[in-house]
Amino acid sequence: MPRSERSPLLLAGLLATAGAAHFAAPRQFDAIVPKVLPGSARTWTYVSGAAELALAAGLAVPRTRRAAALATAAFFVGVFPANVKMAVDWRHRPAPQRAAALGRLPLQVPLVLWARGVAANAGRS
């Protein structure tokens, strides 16, 4: 399988794993939901998990890949405030946890670029 065909499936796998984790261990995600969002943190945890699973499914299907990849890029931008909240909340934790929380911030950039690249390559085979 050429690299260009593996890339969307790898991204789909990442999203599917993250989406499933929102349902398997929701408490850790509840903690990073920004307080400014209305409703319960658990609702947002489940909504974002379901969104990740839907995006993963869309990326896996060539016909929906481009739209799903663009939506994935937007999703990665949209969840950035949760990563900022985590970094702020974890600023006094032990160094490894602090580093993990801070490391999530710049990681969003390559994830957005990866999703945009999948969108740009969708339909080219």
Rank of each mutant, 00 (worst) to 15 (best):
L111P: 01
T43R: 12
A73H: 04
A82V: 00
R63E: 15
A56T: 00
Q97T: 15
P110L: 09
R6P: 01
L59C: 08
A16Y: 00
A67S: 14
N121S: 13
T72K: 02
A82N: 06
L55V: 06
L53M: 15
L105R: 12
S7C: 05
V112F: 07
L14F: 14
A60G: 13
L59H: 04
D89F: 12
A120Y: 06
L9M: 09
P106W: 09
V77P: 01
S48D: 02
N121R: 14
V112S: 07
N83T: 05
R3F: 14
R98C: 05
A67I: 06
G123M: 11
A71G: 15
V118S: 01
V118A: 04
A115K: 02
A56G: 04
L14M: 12
R93Y: 13
A25M: 10
V112Q: 06
A50H: 06
L10Y: 10
L37E: 08
A57W: 09
L9H: 06
A115L: 04
A101R: 00
L70N: 04
A24I: 10
L107P: 06
N83Q: 11
A57M: 03
A21G: 05
Q108V: 14
R124H: 13
E5I: 05
A50N: 06
A25G: 05
V61G: 06
L102Q: 07
V88A: 14
R63W: 10
V36E: 13
F80T: 13
T64E: 02
G13R: 00
A20Y: 00
P94S: 15
L10I: 13
P96S: 13
P34N: 11
R66K: 14
P94E: 15
A54T: 09
R66V: 04
K85D: 07
V79A: 03
P62M: 11
V36I: 15
V47F: 10
H92I: 00
L53T: 01
A51S: 14
P2E: 08
P110W: 10
M86F: 12
K85C: 03
V33C: 08
V33L: 10
L59T: 02
A100T: 12
S4D: 11
A120N: 08
A101T: 06
K85I: 05
V61W: 13
K35C: 08
N83Y: 08
G49N: 06
F80R: 01
Q28L: 15
A24Q: 04
P2K: 04
L37F: 15
K35I: 10
R66S: 10
M86P: 03
W114S: 03
F29V: 04
A73M: 07
G49R: 00
F76H: 07
S125P: 11
R66F: 08
G78I: 11
G19H: 01
G78F: 12
P96A: 14
W90S: 11
K35H: 15
F76L: 11
R6M: 12
A54R: 03
A99M: 11
A120C: 09
A100M: 15
V61C: 08
A120R: 15
R104E: 08
I32A: 02
P34W: 14
V36N: 09
A31K: 13
